[in-house]
Write a protein that binds this DNA or RNA. Structure first.
Length: 785
RNA sequence: GGCCCCGUGGCGGAACAGGUAGACGCACACGACUUAAAAUCGUGAGCCCGUAAGGGCGUCCCGGUUCAAUUCCGGGCGGGGCCACCA
């Protein structure tokens, strides 16, 4: 409700400004929840999904969202996913999609593979189950091909929150360093990676990952090695384990030759804290200047040789900047210069080179589940992996599947996977994995431009007209998931000739969550808000807890339908926009919605009374001109606030105008004209927030046109510039009086008026005025002593 | 541990670009209407002293810059987010 209300305000406001606005809606409809629901309720995922779509569409429509429903899409329909099968084939041709055996994250609850981005603290992002490591053949998209550009182009996204840009930057994790080949006493070569080549003279050991090929080669069969490997895996993924994980190593018995010091031979260990999938899976250890190496050295008694001297006292390990010492030909250099010197020397000697390393890894997209888009590939015993012919697309899901046993239903289907090889015509099997559902959401924005094209995903010229998306609104939880995948997809689609842009979203707004108080009964059982109310009314004990993100498990949820039925769409919309700035969390309260509802009723009463000719006689007669000024200021203020996403401030300004009109007694023609003008401006400024009431009031005022087709009102600049201002007068920085002056009065006049004030005279009594500072239309400060 | 953000009434939050702190709303109090309550309408309100006029204090704490600091700078305390054995 919050997300779409925000979007609707923008859509309606921009439309009123005369823009051609495309405001679409679609359903990201594949995914495990549908499959899990099917398991629980014995419904087919397709039926369950369709029913949910119908229900949600009804709700969204009753909220009065100005959506172009003719462009509605659902990603689970073959009309949609056939196009992404084609995209995948194009990616494959370009080398942007490939298959390889790799160690993957396996979610034991959902029985599927997860992408790195979907593993949080070693747990599945949906199930929270500790992720296991398995070796499987998987399809990958080559997001790393664009790592540098994805990073650099973040700077062009100046309408994105900085927070999200930083998160993506960290996720891509670019670092530069040295890749270096070292000689092992066994005759093998060991390639290591380091970001600190400057500390090479402080190295006192070398270490590699347990699953490094050389670990296996050198240690297989050695007593205790199997136990060691088992220990490494046990320590694996749980949060607590990593926290306390002791650094353990296994001595290979071999040594590594230091590249610059002939008589230094570094003992080579297998160590649990070295990761195979970062860098080369091997390092040299410099205990004096790395926290982990320091711990490891303490345990296995390696020397700690300091080679960087800080310019202040600092304990070891020291990882900061400083002067290089004890380091042969790089002595007295800075850290940065020493890095360059060592890299240069290694390149000269042909034993290593400067490289750029990324934390980002390719996106694994295979999922062993049914409710997703089939991967259009065929496995032939003779020809290997062969793409499905484009003319044979789409590869559709078999509707007749069973969910009675664990694993992938599509793989259990008796006949679906049997096919023939497109190359040799022999018997072959279809790929039974489906795409990660982030695949669908990576390009849907382009489909909206041409939603019913059955020849291609979208016509290039239509995409060119509409894209990129000017304003995207969503939760921050997608910062390194959907938002990164979409940026990659847009680049890949550009390189495959689909699109002309590389950034999908020029403006991004991340809205906060909606929270609600939590309630528990005497036994600590969670209660729904309505249950808590019944309990309280019945005199039963209820403990009220803090307001947290709405969740089914804590039962602190509110059904949008109930709100719409009780208060109407406008009250719900107004409340949600009112108090909290949209980027922050919003606490949902009954009292808040009622406040919004009250306002709507008062606006209705005001207009009804005015149309009926009543005056709402009150004690606050104001000049017609003042009222007009407030109204015209509101036009500008509300527009500025909407554009800056300060919806709470925009609502406050609308309410201020309402308060000004409400108390305004229109007892002559001039006043009545001013009042009508102010009411019309009020209605038009409210339109983006509460469109139903605004439209109704517009008609009540006698207009035959629809307000939705009216342009945004234009403020009379001369009215804004005229009038008087009330400013404060300070003496030595303390407020002592207020004066009212004509706008832009000259400094002399302001000074004279200020010094004439009784409060000012009192405060400067017995003192000499040294200086009078006048800031026009803002403040006067008298400096006296 | 690293990087980043944020601390303003009883509450959500305003304050352009250093210039009258607390807009707007919620909750509250009092008054009107009512037999009464609810709803509605009106009035009030940062805190302390004072019947009032008025005065003092006040934007997490300490210090600095400035005629002037919620805003800028330094140090602390508190809360939150992201990443995290990434060499």
């Amino acid at each position: 409700v919050r997300n779409y209300t925000l979007g609707d305000v923008v859509a309606r406001y921009r439309r009123a400004q005369g823009f051609n606005v495309l405001h679409p809606m679609g359903w990201d409809a594949f995914g495990l929840p549908a499959e899990n629901a099917a398991l629980e309720r014995k419904v087919h995922p397709a039926a369950w999904t369709k029913q949910n779509i119908a229900q949600m569409a009804d709700q969204l429509k009753s909220m009065g969202l100005s959506i172009d429903w003719s462009r509605e899409v659902a990603t689970c329909e073959p009309e949609y996913y056939r196009h992404e099968q084609k995209m995948f084939l194009d990616f494959y041709k370009k080398g942007l999609a490939y298959r390889k055996e790799s160690v993957v994250n396996w979610d034991p609850v959902d029985n599927t593979v997860l992408a790195n981005e979907q593993v949080i603290d070693g747990k599945g992002w949906r199930t929270g189950a500790p992720v296991e490591r398995r070796k499987l053949n998987q399809w990958f998209l080559k997001i790393t091909h664009y790592a540098d550009d994805l990073l650099d182009a973040l700077q062009t996204l100046d309408r994105w929150p900085e927070k999200v840009r930083i998160m993506q930057e960290n996720w891509i994790g670019k670092s530069t360093g040295l890749r270096l080949r070292l000689d092992v006493s066994s005759g093998d070569k060991l390639e290591i990676f380091t970001t600190r080549p400057d500390t090479i003279f402080g190295a006192s050991f070398a270490a590699m990952a347990p699953d490094h090929p050389l670990s296996q080669k050198l240690c297989k069969g050695k007593p205790g090695f199997d136990d060691f490997i088992r220990q490494c895996q046990a320590g694996g993924t749980s949060e607590a384990a990593i926290e306390q994980a002791e650094k353990i190593g296994f001595d290979t018995g071999q040594t590594v030759q230091h590249p610059f010091l002939k008589d230094v031979k570094l003992p080579l260990y297998v160590a649990n804290f070295i990761l195979m999938d970062y860098g080369t899976g091997a390092i040299y250890g410099v205990p004096a200047h790395d926290e982990r190496d320091f711990q490891f050295a303490a345990k296995y008694k390696f020397p700690v040789k300091q080679v960087v001297k800080p310019d202040h006292d600092a304990p070891l390990p020291y990882t900061g900047d400083g002067e290089i010492v004890n380091s042969d030909f790089i002595n007295s250099l800075s850290v940065a210069d020493a890095k360059a010197a060592i890299i240069g020397k290694c390149e000269e000697a042909g034993i290593g080179e400067g490289v750029t390393q990324y934390r980002l890894r390719d996106w694994g997209i295979s999922r062993q589940r049914y409710w997703g888009c089939p991967i259009p590939m065929i496995h032939c015993r003779k020809c290997g992996v062969v793409p499905v012919k484009e003319s044979d697309l789409p590869v559709t899901l078999p509707p007749d599947v069973t969910f009675d046993k664990p694993g992938n239903p599509i793989a259990h289907h008796p006949t679906w996977k049997n096919t023939t090889c497109p190359t040799c015509g022999g018997a072959a099997e279809r790929e039974t994995d489906t795409f990660d559902t982030f695949f669908e959401s990576s390009w849907y924005f382009a489909r909206y431009c041409d939603a019913h094209n059955d020849k291609e995903a979208f016509a290039r010229d239509k995409a060119k007209y509409w894209l990129p998306v000017d304003q995207y609104i969503g939760g921050v939880e997608h910062a390194v998931l959907h938002l990164l995948y979409s940026r990659f997809f847009t680049r890949a689609l550009k390189d495959c000739g689909y699109l002309d842009i590389k950034e999908p979203f020029t403006g991004l707004f991340t809205q906060g969550m909606v929270t609600h108080e939590t309630y528990q009964d005497a036994e600590g059982k969670w209660l729904y808000p309505y249950e808590a109310k019944t309990y309280k009314d019945g005199g039963k004990a209820v403990t009220t807890g803090p307001s947290v993100k709405m969740s089914k498990s804590k039962k602190n949820t509110v059904d949008p339908q109930d709100i719409l039925d009780t208060y109407g769409a406008d009250a719900a919309r107004l409340f949600i926009l009112s108090d909290s700035p949209p980027e922050r969390d919003l606490e949902w309260t009954e009292a808040g919605v009622e406040g919004a509802w009250r306002f709507i009723n008062r606006v209705h009463a005001l207009v009804t009374e005015f149309v009926a000719g009543g005056n709402m006689e009150s004690a606050k007669p104001d000049s017609a001109k003042n009222l007009r000024q407030v109204a015209h200021k509101t036009i500008v203020g509300v527009a500025t606030d909407i554009e800056a996403f300060h919806m709470n401030k925009a609502v406050a300004k609308v309410r201020e105008l309402f308060n000004a009109v409400y108390g305004f007694a229109a007892n002559d023609n001039e006043a009545r004209d001013a009042k009508r003008e102010a009411i019309e401006i009020l209605i038009r400024c409210m339109n983006p927030f509460i469109p139903h009431l605004a439209e109704e009031m517009w008609a009540a005022l006698g207009h035959k046109t629809l307000l939705v087709d009216e342009k945004w009102p234009v403020a009379d600049q001369s009215l804004l510039a005229e009038g008087t201002v009330t400013i404060g007068v300070q003496v030595n920085g303390k407020l002592r009086a207020q004066i009212t002056l004509p706008r832009d009065a000259d400094q002399k006049a302001a000074e004279t008026a200020a010094l004439a004030e009784a409060g000012v005279k009192n405060a400067i009594e017995g003192k000499t005025v040294k200086k009078v500072i006048v800031v026009p239309n803002r403040i006067v400060n008298v400096v006296a002593g």
